[in-house]
Design a protein around this nucleic acid. Sequence first.
DNA 1: TTAAAGTTACGTCACTTACTAATGTATCGA
DNA 2: TCGATACATTAGTAAGTGACGTAACTTTAA
Lengths: 139, 139
Amino acid sequence: MRLPLKTEYACQVLAQLASTYSEEGVRQVEDLAVAENLSPNYSVQILTVLRQAGLVISRRGKNGGYLLAKHPDQITLADIALAMEGGSIIESSLGNEGMSAGNVHAAWVRVNEALLENCREIKLSELVAGSEDDSDWMI
Amino acid sequence: MRLPLKTEYACQVLAQLASTYSEEGVRQVEDLAVAENLSPNYSVQILTVLRQAGLVISRRGKNGGYLLAKHPDQITLADIALAMEGGSIIESSLGNEGMSAGNVHAAWVRVNEALLENCREIKLSELVAGSEDDSDWMI
DNA sequence: TTAAAGTTACGTCACTTACTAATGTATCGA
DNA sequence: TCGATACATTAGTAAGTGACGTAACTTTAA
């Protein structure tokens, strides 16, 4: 199954915000969109979701923009994925009434939980271009 | 992101085949579809994919049908998911040219690999309705 | 040879995705 | 306070995908 572009874009936008986290300033949508090669209009919609999830803070009006709500070390892939996808990263429908439907669904729920654990171990700070923390992943 | 129904159905059909694995006989599509509450026609398409992946064996002609190609302990969720989804379970597009696109893509590739490891630990035999191996999952 | 079974190809309809566009709303500075 | 600026929200849409159904073909046991 394909990871939604929206989720990937969310990671990129957040990584872009993280890259200037120390500077304490606000980044404008136009700025973020250009840096990550995204449509500004679409970026706004993604940022709105991220704001509602409490991952970014926005300031409206003149000199407005966005900034991370937490330190890049305290935001994980799990946070981002859950913000964009809702309750679970992989959601299996417990649809039909087949004999094995219950067991199959339960198995995928377990898989989703294990996946969440894995995603909790990847920090936003690792996604920032240029920060070579990439060498020591997965312990 | 939603787990495709096709993949869930594949798990159900295989679980159904596994439930009569010891009996050595062939199961017909109609039989499998009724047991798992699926459309027979759609089940055929799923079984075709599973056959091409080497997970089931088919016999054509009168008294034909399907049977598992391996013991239910030797088929894992990873096998099933890869058969239905192709190369990876979660595939992230390394689409645009944004600054963080490369890092983000790499992170999701890692997530997919970890996910595969998790799926390798869930055996088809655990999905069979009635076999209560469900109590001791994940060690 | 015929009926029962799997095989393949094609069609299709509803839904989702990935956007664009338009309009609304808040804030700063002159 | 006025207007420029920037975020917020909603609506619209074109292309793609998913989940089927249909139909014609092929193989095999009896």
